[in-house]
Design a protein around this nucleic acid. Structure first.
Length: 364
DNA sequence: AATGAGTCCAACCGCCGCAGG
DNA sequence: GCCTGCGGCGGTTGGACTCAT
């Protein structure tokens, strides 16, 4: 038992619209305006379903529509918004003047999704595939080093996990995965993931949207849009992720590789820069003296890790790992150097970090 | 030139929420 | 509270077009 069709399908024309039909719609709308689409076919002299007339108008004939290609700025905004709110095409399109949800959806399905695939990013979760595989492997209870992540690092990890495994939480996490952009996690307090998957009866729900209200979605859109439009990274508040932890220790950021046998384990560390040291360009990042002096940066083919991430794959294959060899993770010269997150620590112990060329460069 | 594969996108489909009776 | 109609939405389809062989 379903709703009956909106019109008699045997008696309506389908398929592509002719110029003559377009002219009839335009003439009708210019005279009567939009609304009550079910009566439009009859009044406009069309053998079309009213719904089809509405779609033709909203997706193609509306005078405020853009028909040219998407700009890189629009592309970036779509990706960021999709990451923040998922495939809510109408909400995304509302942030792109002159674009319809159909436009955005088609562009995503034909261009952007493929582009992310080619970059090694899952277009659904916006995570690197290798990380997803690693996460999948961990579900089976792979042995993990109990102390593999420093406490600060663990806080970051929790933030990532809550963001990516539950519904996006606009108050907490805005991931701006654009080139040279800042990712901020605005609220240290993390809500239990379960809250986003459980309704009032305590039963599981696979509809993540239940934990969002419209206001929160709009806040997310606003924040992502602002972040995308911002050219001044310094204006974005840095992350404060460890309450009361104003002192900094490099040991917090050292992790062990729990996958490789102990004799092959790789010491690795986060990639730091002082806020005052650069504009955020990867080529300007310098190794901290303490690390170098400790000998942790001495051998070739060292693996560098993302902020908040650990190595599940034996040292290869997810965003943030440098595949270009020694020191390339610092972005000095190699074309294969890309796609990692730079942590930025200021004098107060507050941290923000940025994706570096995650969109503009391939992963491999 | 013919043909098949791949790409793109306009249009369709079915479901949903909302408003009005 | 229920029913109905409408508009909106996201997913999918199918045909036109492009490109490679």
């Amino acid at each position: 038992m379903g709703r009956p069709p909106c019109c008699d399908k045997s008696n309506v024309k389908r398929g592509l619209w002719t110029e003559e039909e377009d002219a009839k719609i335009l003439a009708y709308v210019s005279k009567h305006g939009t609304g009550n689409w079910t009566s439009v076919p009859k009044k406009a002299g069309l053998k079309r379903c009213g719904k089809s007339c509405r779609l033709r108008w909203t997706n193609y004939l509306r005078p405020d529509l853009k028909h040219e290609s998407f700009t890189p700025q629009e592309e970036e905004l779509i990706i960021n918004l999709h990451q923040a709110i998922g495939s809510r095409w109408s909400l995304i399109a509302a942030q792109l003047p002159g674009r319809t949800d159909n436009d955005v959806k088609n562009y995503w399905n034909t261009k952007l999704r493929k582009k992310l695939y080619e970059m090694g990013i899952d277009p659904v979760t916006h995570k690197p595939f290798s990380q997803i595989l690693a996460d999948y492997g961990n579900i089976g209870g792979l042995p993990r080093a109990g102390n593999r992540i420093g406490s600060l690092n663990r806080d970051l990890r929790n933030a990532f996990m809550s963001k990516s495994e539950s519904a996006p939480l606009p108050q907490e996490a805005i991931l701006n995965a654009s080139s040279h952009s800042i990712m901020t996690i605005r609220t240290p307090k993390m809500e239990p993931i379960q809250d986003c998957h459980t309704n009032n009866n305590g039963s599981s729900s696979n509809n993540n949207n239940h934990c969002w209200d419209l206001l929160a979605e709009l806040q997310a859109i606003k924040l992502v849009t602002e972040a995308s439009n911002s050219t001044n990274q310094e204006t974005i508040p840095p992350l404060f992720f460890s309450e009361g932890s104003s002192t900094f220790s490099w040991s917090e950021f050292l992790v062990e590789d729990a996958v490789l046998p102990s004799e092959q384990q790789t010491q690795c560390y986060l990639d730091f820069q002082g806020l005052s040291s650069s504009t955020g360009s990867s080529s300007q990042i310098e190794m901290h003296d303490d690390i170098t002096q400790n000998g942790l940066n001495s051998e070739a083919n060292k693996t560098f890790y993302d902020v908040g991430e650990t190595d599940y794959g034996g040292g290869q294959g997810f965003a943030g790992i440098d595949k270009g060899g020694a020191n390339n993770a610092f972005g000095a010269s190699s074309s294969s150097d890309n796609s990692f997150i730079d942590a930025i620590l200021d004098q107060d112990g507050e941290m923000s970090w940025e994706f570096v060329d995650i969109l503009s460069e391939p992963f491999y």
